[in-house]
Design a protein around this nucleic acid. Sequence first.
DNA 1: CGCACACTGAAAAAATCTTTTCATGACAGT
DNA 2: ACTGTCATGAAAAGATTTTTTCAGTGTGCG
Lengths: 290, 290
Amino acid sequence: MTVASKTVSDVIHSHFGVLTRAEKQLAESLLDNYPVSGLGSITTIAENAGVSTPTVVRMVQKLGFKGYPDFQAHLHQEVEATISNPIAKHDRWASNAPGTHILNRFADAIIDNLRQTLTGLDTATFDSVATLLSDRKRNLYFVGGRITGALAEYFFTHMQVIRPNTALLSANSSSWPQYVLNMNPGDLLIIFDIRRYEQELVSLATAAKNSGAEIIIFTDQWASPATKLARHTFRVQIEAPSAWDSSVVTLFIVEALIEAVQNSTWDETKERMKTLEGLFEQTRLFRKLG
Amino acid sequence: MTVASKTVSDVIHSHFGVLTRAEKQLAESLLDNYPVSGLGSITTIAENAGVSTPTVVRMVQKLGFKGYPDFQAHLHQEVEATISNPIAKHDRWASNAPGTHILNRFADAIIDNLRQTLTGLDTATFDSVATLLSDRKRNLYFVGGRITGALAEYFFTHMQVIRPNTALLSANSSSWPQYVLNMNPGDLLIIFDIRRYEQELVSLATAAKNSGAEIIIFTDQWASPATKLARHTFRVQIEAPSAWDSSVVTLFIVEALIEAVQNSTWDETKERMKTLEGLFEQTRLFRKLG
DNA sequence: CGCACACTGAAAAAATCTTTTCATGACAGT
DNA sequence: ACTGTCATGAAAAGATTTTTTCAGTGTGCG
């Protein structure tokens, strides 16, 4: 196909000589603010150029396109190419791996997840959550499902070092009521609920909310039903070339939050970490002596 | 106009919670490769998303647009804005964030870690480990440190579904000897040991090796001392703009391994997952009856 | 001046796109 | 099990866009 390799702009330029007066006028209009000016309907661009619609049809056919829709399809492709993903998706990852190795496919998927998640993530939300988590007066409760429990634990372990008043709810829901019993207004319940949303988590969230607790949810693009109860929601892209979902991006956000919280109260945290160091030392000593 | 100031993407995200299944599907399709995917006719985008055209109309109206043409006009404006502003192209991460937001700095760091880790990772090692983990005759033992315990748990939880003979060693080292006692030659001990290498893990690894177990280690670029005892080592880049190390890439490798193992024995795994589904169902039933 | 030819846009026709209507099916609550 | 509600897409109706037709206009040339 002669048209395929060249840009529409090239085609217009190369045909400029054979264009009639009205067509030239149209071409000028198209080239001005190219390629966006060609995005609308034939009626629109005809009006913008001050020519009739038949003129548009005649010109695009003269340029070698089948008709206006064909012309526009080419333009769309160009727009896509112009806007397309700036993160070099096919950057040589593991250089000694064949392109289809699972590691590479996974890497592509994760990058894509990361990009999409970040695009859809409001930094204001992130900052608000970080501020809430930094408030030491609020008790923090972490809970996850069967798979996401490990993420809840990871988050909890770090926050426990950084600040007081943190708790990890076990995966077993039978112990949850006791925690809810102790929740005060302003406390935070951080829920991880992905894919197979667990009905019990909705119940937990409802109960917590009734106690005045605020709810923060990490969920997937399809959104857990508990989302309705949440003050803040992180919608994470979890697609992976696998039968399982990917938690990589969720972990990414968790780590970023950890840093944000820690950073906002660094002096205090530093003290706590020193103390913790000392405690570890003592434990080790105990063992040696014992 | 309320819609005018926000991007279409924002509007979609903010309404995501109230969208129905088909609408979410459509929203996903639109957001994927946004905003180019919304350039075509309503028929085209409905087809691409696998929904009907009425669904498209209903959704855009739900989002606050007057109709599809109105929706598309907004999209065109955005495309125009994006194209005419080349700087916007370069930070399509969290597009509403200043370049120095922690999320962006973290994203950069993670991408870098991923790239470096994959460059230094031999796919042959990966494949060998996947093969070892797929061998159901070998018992699998997972163990992690204080922070990495969650990763060990995550790995364990998945492998437990995929295959029999898996065990998670608690963070508390006092129970370890019993596990070692039961290790047979050929069994696998998967160790997560990052940064503050825990001396006890070396002891564990030594004991396990004496029992004939093979050792697989996830560690950082400085390498845990237990590495010497390992048959296979994953050296992961863990740098982050934070006081803490990042486990994101480690999790990435874990997930890729999960998929590789699962994939190598899919038929068997599928059966197991079905059975598990049934068991969950029963548990739920028990609860309702009880 | 008259004729031939090409250019152009109004208007009609054809094609396509957009919206509305409506029947169906799924599902939650009683 | 029954009922009402909601989501969904097929199909019809409506609106718009695209293409074609065709008549009017202008220009060049004998």
